[in-house]
Design a binder for these strands. Structure first.
Length: 733
DNA sequence: CGGATTTAACTTTTT
DNA sequence: GTTAAATCCG
């Protein structure tokens, strides 16, 4: 166990040891925010002798929660009963504990955004609203905004002023009914339903108010009205609410986060003690100056000035390029420079972009350069089609009322139950007031069904019922393995010999091992437990900083992380700030805060890149540099002219020039071998080369020539690798 | 009904 | 340039 106050600065110490009551810690980027929060909790347990089970601490990501749990445990040792988790997981747990008492279904399922949209679509069908008229997605976002703002369907319908809002209100109302009938909650429900329960059953609220005498919230600037309400309810009696946040890092307004929660904290909680953490331990003076010169353009800030004892550091480098391919290869080139000049390794770098679509060009360049990278985000594992299919089987077995899952898989893989047959069953279900699943058992009562469809439905029903009975008999692991086999999903993918099919099969296998892992690690593994875990994980949660690879992710997922070197490509108007944010000054300010978050991820060096021309799905567009670039204090930014700046090594400049390497790739599409074949002759047996990933080595053999030329290299670390000369990138020497 | 082929829609960010 | 939905054909 460590001395819990070890190396805290005076402000941090004051914040940690503050007396009871509402406390707001305004903590700038890199100022030791998580440290203060974890030390505070340890202080309560060790020095104020608060029992751990009276302490609740909420974060927004599982990763942050895990980190906090680990750090507190390190400081306190045993701390049984301490509740640390994401808002969603904590209240999902609470709902499971209280569901029965308030007449809700205990084994409720959780709908993610994809399930949500499917449900909305099917509601639109029954309401005869064409999906071409209003996008189900935009309806979903309206509904989510309502829920986050605690506006129930009837209230929303009353205030509806446009045809769109009227329809959305009707759908919202039907959507809520359907969720209850399906015995599921969506993400927003995990926050709003506990509020409803607390309002309706004061004795339940009182129980938790008594239990959680100390409530903590991390990243408080990201809370929405619903989360705020819930936190306020819990902390109302004891007033021991400890929140940590940074208004300059509020980047989730689009998800309902209300920046007023942090700006008005003092008003909402009288006698609030405020602490400001302004000493930054992460970045250079230069980076902090750049970040603060950007964010001062925002109005309505709490106002804070970050400072550091650290070095001035290098200037921010601004790089202009021709197109996104050059942009990507400049990143590769700069990475290589950094590796050589500053002895960095791949895990020191992160490339942060505004939209996931930007990753493609960069990935291509990194692969070409032989640099290992990991992507965080994009299509999340549990959102892949094949995984969602597999999950739908499990969800249906765990909860037969889940019609969205039922519809998803009743005919996948194809088993002869088409739209027509399903509609007959649905009509029957509606007439009888039964659920769709229960109606499956009544095929004989539905005369419209053909014999073939009837048999198929019967078989399907029997299979699901069988597994429902097996739930408590065999382990989830065993159940899923047999099920995947029997339902035909595995078979279906094994037949598919395309590379896409193979990768889907791989994903299913990974999914199976995830279940196995869950069963092995959990004390009391259940199917419902597994499904809940799956619904509430994000990608950043699984990112690990031990792998030696360059990290690629969106600026949003980067919050809370830090890297020695940061690249931010796509510094262009309409991309960053993104075009849709141009509508209102508030949204521009949020984009600016996002830029601030990006800059402050860096410890030592920031590269900003923009391009004059960019391909966005198909067509080309010409671009202007982002307004944010001009907002950076000119004393800390260095504009590098395109090209001519390459000074990476003493070898013929053509060899590392990215332009050449993109031409090489072009060579595939538009044969023009001259350029590279000349270069490739530079590679010969006995030559010493350096590869960004494998280090120094000697070429031991050269086979073929031109496009097909291959070289074998014996590296000093002992490994021997063979490269296609065209794609490999070496420095000579 | 199922599978194959064509078409359209898409890109903001996520628990 | 990808993926889901719509359409067509056997």
């Amino acid at each position: 166990m460590e001395d819990i106050f070890k190396s805290l600065n005076p402000e941090q110490l004051k914040a940690v040891t503050a007396p009871d009551g509402p406390i707001l810690v305004l903590a700038g980027a890199g100022s030791g925010k998580t440290r203060v929060l974890t030390t505070r909790i340890a202080h309560l347990i060790k020095q104020r002798e608060v029992p751990p089970w009276q302490i609740l601490s909420m974060t927004f990501t599982n990763k942050a929660a895990g980190e906090m749990r680990g750090r507190v445990a390190k400081l306190t040792g045993e701390n049984k009963g301490l509740w640390v988790g994401t808002f969603h997981s904590i209240f999902a747990k609470l709902l499971r504990m209280e569901a029965q008492q308030v007449g809700l279904y205990v084994n409720f399922g959780i709908y993610d955004s994809d399930d949500q949209v499917r449900l909305i679509k099917s509601i639109m069908e029954t309401l005869r609203v064409p999906v071409t008229q209003y996008a189900p997605k935009s309806i979903a976002s309206v509904i989510s905004k309502c829920k986050n703002g605690l506006i129930p369907p009837n209230q929303f319908m009353k205030s509806a002023s446009t045809p769109f809002e009227e329809i959305a209100g009707k759908i919202y109302s039907a959507y809520e009914n359907q969720l209850r009938l399906n015995q599921v909650f969506d993400f927003d429900d995990l926050i709003t339903v506990p509020i409803q329960i607390f309002e309706k059953y004061p004795e339940i609220l009182a129980k938790y108010q008594e239990r959680f005498q100390y409530v903590h919230v991390d990243e408080y600037q990201d809370t929405n009205i619903a989360q705020y309400t819930l936190v306020r309810m819990l902390a109302e009696v004891h007033q021991n609410l400890y929140v940590v946040g940074d208004d300059d890092q509020s980047i989730y307004g689009w998800r309902g986060a209300d920046i007023r929660n942090i700006l008005d904290f003092e008003k909402d909680f009288p006698n609030t003690q405020i602490f400001r953490l302004e000493q930054n331990y992460r970045s250079t003076k230069t980076i902090l100056k750049a970040a603060s010169s950007v964010v001062v353009h925002n109005s309505g800030r709490k106002g804070k000035t970050l400072w550091t004892d650290g070095a001035d550091g290098e200037k921010i480098e601004l790089i202009e390029t021709m197109d996104e391919r050059e942009e990507a290869s400049r990143i590769v080139e700069k990475t290589r420079d950094e590796v050589f000049k500053h002895k960095r390794t791949f895990k020191d770098f992160a490339i942060l972009y505004r939209t996931s679509a930007q990753s493609r060009a960069i990935e291509d360049a990194l692969r070409r350069g032989g640099m290992s990278y990991v992507i965080v985000g994009g299509v999340r594992f549990y959102e892949r089609k094949e995984i969602k299919d597999a999950l739908a089987y499990l969800k249906l077995i765990a909860n037969p009322m889940d019609t969205v899952s039922l519809k998803r898989i009743i005919n996948f893989p194809a088993r002869g139950i088409g739209d027509v047959s399903l509609t007959h069953v649905q009509n029957y279900a509606a007439e009888q007031g039964k659920s769709i699943f229960d109606s499956l058992a009544d095929v004989k009562q539905i005369p419209e069904l053909t014999e073939r469809a009837g048999t198929a439905i019967h078989t399907f029903n029997k299979m699901i019922v069988k597994y429902q009975q097996l739930i408590d008999e065999i382990s989830p692991n065993e159940l899923v393995h047999t099920l995947m086999d029997e339902c035909g999903l595995l078979h279906n993918l094994k037949e598919d010999s395309t590379s896409e099919g193979q990768s889907r099969l791989e994903n299913i296998r990974e999914f199976l091992s995830a279940i196995k892992e869950y069963v092995e690690e959990s004390d009391s593994p259940t199917l419902a437990g597994f499904l809940e875990g799956v619904a509430l994980v994000s990608d950043v949660d699984t990112w690990n900083d031990k792998t030696n690879a360059i990290t690629l992710m969106t600026l949003h997922s980067a919050k809370g992380l830090e890297f020695p070197v940061i690249f931010i490509p796509g510094m262009e108007e309409n991309l960053f700030p993104i075009s849709r944010a141009l509508e209102s000054p508030e949204q521009i300010e949020e984009e600016r805060r996002l830029f601030y978050v990006g800059l402050t991820r860096a410890e030592q060096k920031v590269y900003l890149l923009y391009t004059n021309r960019r391909n966005t799905y198909g067509s080309e567009s010409y671009r202007l540099p982002s307004r944010f670039i001009d907002e950076i204090d000119s004393s800390v930014i260095e504009r590098k002219k395109s090209r001519s700046t390459t000074t990476s090594s003493s070898l013929p400049s053509s060899f590392t020039r990215p332009r050449i390497s993109s031409q090489k790739i072009y060579a595939d599409a538009h044969p023009d071998y001259e350029a590279f074949s000349q270069e490739s002759t530079l590679l010969r047996k006995g030559l010493m080369v350096t590869h960004a990933l494998f280090g120094r080595g000697q070429i031991t053999s050269v086979e073929g020539s031109g496009k097909k030329m291959k070289v074998t290299v014996q590296f000093q670390n002992g490994s021997v690798k063979k490269f296609i000369a065209q794609y490999a990138q070496f420095d000579i020497g």
